[in-house]
């Protein structure tokens, strides 16, 4: 089992200027990576004998108003360690390579992010209508400034 420091050291050694460790609250093993190396990165952590992180828990998209963050959560069944990976794409017309060739389970997660945030995953086998109705025409709804036909903001409470 590799501890947090070792994991980050191995990753930074392999991708020197494209991976950096980040601090999050609460403490966890987290890195920020360049979106262009995403496929090579996941290949590496899946196959490296000390890391072996092939188990994808979730991929979330986050609208950070300046850009869209894509956050991957991985863990290893053999070593029981975890990793949080963040990467940034453009807000309008963001593109990133799909990792469904490396980890098959990413398929539906990426499809959902494409549909709800508008991020295109290059090379994805099936970017089609997923959760939203077939006749949806109001744009990616999870963006923070989306105002659909029936969207009502709740009144503020407290501070």
């Amino acid at each position: 089992m590799a501890d947090s420091g070792t994991i980050i050291r191995l990753l930074v050694e392999k991708f020197p200027s494209q991976v950096e460790a980040i601090e999050l609250n609460p403490k966890q093993t987290a890195v920020q990576i360049d979106p262009r190396i995403v496929v090579a990165f996941f290949e590496f952590i899946k196959t490296h004998p000390d890391l072996k992180m092939a188990y994808l828990s979730s991929i979330s998209g986050v609208d950070m108003t300046t850009n869209i963050d894509i956050v991957y959560f991985l863990s290893s069944i053999e070593y029981k360690h975890k990793l949080t990976v963040r990467t940034k794409v453009n807000r309008k017309g963001g593109k990133i390579d799909t990792i469904s060739t490396v980890i098959k389970g990413a398929n539906w997660f990426e499809r959902e992010i494409w549909e709800l945030f508008g991020v295109e995953f290059l090379g994805h086998p099936n970017l089609t209508q997923f959760l939203l109705p077939d006749d949806w025409d109001e744009g990616p709804p999870m963006l923070r400034d989306w105002t659909g036909r029936n969207f009502v903001k709740m009144p503020e409470i407290g501070g």
């Binding site: 999050l24 609250n25 986050v62 956050v71 959560f73 407290g158």
Partner: peptide
């Protein structure tokens, strides 16, 4: 009034169906 500090976490538990995860920012 519950006001947590700035942070981000992915918590997961063992549900009867499998892993249930919650990513809060």
């Amino acid at each position: 009034l519950f006001k947590p500090p700035v942070g981000e976490v992915y918590a997961r538990i063992e549900n009867s169906r499998g892993e249930m995860g919650c990513h809060i920012i």
